[in-house]
Structure formats: C-alpha cells, structure tokens
Amino acid sequence: MGELMRSAILCFAFWLGAQWAWAQKGAFEKQVYYAQGDSLLYQILLPNDFQEGKKYPLILFLHGAGERGDDNEKQLKLGGSLFESDSVQQDYPAIIVFPQCPEGTMWTARQKQKDRKGDWRFNFPVPEHPPKPSEMVNALVDSLRSGTQVDPSRVYIMGISMGGIGTLEFLHRWPEKYAAAAVICGGHNPQLTGNYHQVPIWFFHGGKDDVVPPAFSKAVFKRIKRKNKASRYTLYPEANHNSWDDALAEPQLLNWLFQFKHL
C-alpha cells in the first residue's frame, strides 16, 4: 500500500469517527469518499443501537446496472429497505454500505453478446487493475475495517446482477476481507474460484432469467461446493431476472450470513 493510500485511509478513518458522532441512526446517510484523486458516492446506515467503541458487522452491498448514476440515491432501490426495517435493526445490527457506480462503467470488465440463437454469452476478463469504482470501493472497505467500529472478522458482501458479478470478482481479488457473501442473479468464470472457494456463498437465481442466465451462477457454485459445503444455491423456477424480490425476502438470509466469521 502506497504512502498516499495510507494517509487517505488514516484521514478518512479519523473523519468517519467524527461523522458517526452525529449520523442519524437507523436510516441511510449520503456520504462521499475521497481518495486517489477521485471520489465515490455511497450511503451508510448505522444501527439503531449504535454505540461509540462497540464493533459491528459490516455489509457491503453492490447494486445492479440499473442503479448506476450520480444521484447517490438509486443504489438503495433494491435492498435498502431491508436493512432499515425494524426487525432487521433489532436482530441484525450492522453497518451497511451501498456505494454507487457511475454511469458508463461497471464493477467489473465483464463482456456480453448474443449468439446466433439470441442467447446471452458472457466473458469475464479480469485485468490487473479493477475498474476505478471497484478500486475506490475496496479502499473504502479498507478504511472502514481499519476503524474502531467495524469487526474485521465479520465483513460481508452482497450483490445483485452487475453487483452479483462484482461480488464474485471482489472475492477473487480480495478474498481475505469477506467472511461470507450473497450473490443474486450474478455469475462469473468458475475457473477463478481458487482464490475464494473457502468463502461461504449463497447464490440466488431465477430459472427464467434471460438477462444473466442461471447457468453462470450454477457453474461457479458447482466448482465452489467441492471444497465448501457451507455454500448454498437457491433457484426460483418461475422467476426471471428479478429474483432479488424472492432472495431479499428469504427469512434466513441474514441469519445465514451472520453465522460466519473470519478466524
């Protein structure tokens, strides 16, 4: 890690501690993270019972392509209300972070095109350096983990569609950060699971998904399941790409996620 990055993380950690003193608890707050001469829009939610000096789990949530932009709002469209609910606040107090990816870029360098039959075909190149938004998100996670309020053994990642693809690539690039993950209507190259096969992942997909076909998540799951019996795969036979409706309503989702810790 370069000196500039270290300085940015230390400054941000100090700034974040001050912000938490006045941030509204139980509701998302708009924030901007600055590092590497760039900025990242995100929203953060603190639990209702937030206490200075207490460590909480951290959930990073990567949105889909439809929520990209610069309003620092759309990224909460899918999933935001789940974490603000009274029951989740009571049973699963955590620090929740929803970054927003700008238009014209993605969390990954994935490519797709339709074949002669009209079916989508995906490629998942992984260049040496991730797209800038993902690089910024990773730096933000580093900042939060280095602070006094996050339990570094209980950092989780979730993602929908483009964010589900991003989740798997984040695990490939930075597997040491995350104790468990949830991937909704996403997928990736199953040949790249070697770095993260030890991370428990719950996959969700719609059987009729014609945007990201379920074969792409199923292939990753099959490869991971060989060495990680804690991972799960749930297929909703009648759901299309909007399998997030069912996945985010799964009553055991957060209970399953929060059981895992880094040793």
Rank of each mutant, 00 (worst) to 15 (best):
E3K: 15
Y42W: 13
H63K: 13
A27V: 01
R173N: 04
S81R: 10
P131N: 06
I165T: 01
Q149N: 11
A109Y: 06
L257H: 01
D245F: 08
S231A: 13
K177H: 01
M106G: 02
A18P: 02
A180Y: 06
S153W: 10
L168E: 04
S7M: 12
Y92H: 14
V220E: 05
E176T: 04
R154N: 13
V155T: 10
P131R: 09
E29L: 09
I165C: 01
I95K: 09
G159V: 01
L46S: 08
G64N: 08
D91S: 13
G53H: 01
G163L: 01
I157A: 07
N48A: 09
I157D: 11
G207K: 11
P57I: 15
I160V: 00
F12D: 03
P175W: 05
D142H: 12
S231R: 15
R145H: 09
L144P: 12
R223W: 02
Q252D: 03
L40W: 01
S85V: 00
Y233R: 06
V141P: 06
V137F: 09
L46I: 11
F61C: 08
W120C: 08
G163Q: 02
D246V: 07
A65K: 09
H129R: 11
I201A: 08
H262A: 06
T148E: 15
G53Q: 12
K227M: 08
K30W: 02
P152I: 04
G206D: 06
A180R: 08
G164L: 15
S231W: 09
W256P: 03
I165L: 13
K218N: 04
R116T: 02
L4M: 03
A215I: 00
G194N: 02
K25W: 04
R110T: 08
S217A: 14
Q198V: 05
K225E: 07
A94W: 03
A65R: 10
L41A: 02
Y56W: 03
Q19A: 07
E250M: 06
N189I: 07
M162K: 06
L10D: 12
Q111C: 10
T167W: 04
R68K: 09
E29Y: 03
K54A: 04
A65C: 07
K30Q: 09
M1T: 01
A249I: 08
I160N: 04
S143E: 15
K218C: 05
L16M: 11
G80Q: 12
V137M: 13
T105H: 14
I160T: 03
H205W: 00
V97Y: 10
S161W: 01
K177W: 00
V137D: 13
C101E: 05
S81A: 12
E128W: 05
R116P: 04
G17Y: 14
L10E: 11
Y34I: 03
Q43M: 15
G163T: 00
R226L: 10
F98Q: 07
M158I: 01
A181P: 10
Q19H: 01
F61S: 07
V183G: 05
P200F: 15
V126T: 03
A18C: 05
